[in-house]
């Protein structure tokens, strides 16, 4: 299924004339293009029958959309209260040291984007790390080298 067709399938779930498929369409566009590049926004906008400006206005509001290129893999460490209280910062430091980049940055080879995020809803299983959107729970600094190795091996 092309991106255009996938977006039409999303639009069909909602009443005619609504823009309700926008969030999912942007997600699909991002999956296809890796990030919401101007080309991606244009393609999504065409499929939704809205302007690229509308798509960009929506995309800038939400944290899960990438408006600049990101790595092949995404590592997100929660640093909100419950994770912070049990040592999220040591996990952040371990990723920074293992990957050689600061939070918010992408490794030089474009392999991994590493960032801190707000509460992922895994507070009872802190520290929570989302690796390519899959939650790893109870992550401690000692677990970090293996996670990074796994990512490096997989790409």
């Amino acid at each position: 299924m092309t991106l255009y067709e996938a977006i039409q399938a999303e639009r069909a779930k909602y009443p005619d004339g609504s823009r309700s498929a926008t969030l999912e369409a942007l997600r699909l566009g991002q999956e296809e293009h890796g990030w919401l590049s101007p080309d991606a926004l244009r393609e999504v906008a065409d499929a939704l029958d809205v302007t690229p400006a509308y798509c960009k206005a929506v995309a800038t509001f939400y944290d899960m959309y990438h408006l600049e290129p990101v790595g092949t893999h995404l590592v997100e460490v929660c640093t909100n209260l419950s994770c912070a209280l049990v040592g999220a910062q040591s996990v952040v430091d371990a990723f920074a040291s293992e990957l050689g980049v600061a939070p918010g940055e992408t490794t030089e080879d474009g392999d991994v984007t590493f960032r801190t995020v707000e509460c992922l809803g895994g507070c009872g299983y802190a520290t929570v790390v989302a690796v390519d959107h899959r939650y790893r729970q109870h992550v401690g600094p000692d677990d970090v080298p293996a996670i990074v190795e796994e990512l490096r091996a997989g790409s």
Partner: peptide, 22 residues
């Protein structure tokens, strides 16, 4: 403190690159 040095995402977020005209 148990929260010493904690990095909040807004310190690390780079969400809005320069505006581009599409």
């Amino acid at each position: 403190s148990s929260l010493d040095g904690i990095v909040a995402p807004l310190d690390a977020h780079r969400h809005h690159p320069g505006l581009e005209v599409i």
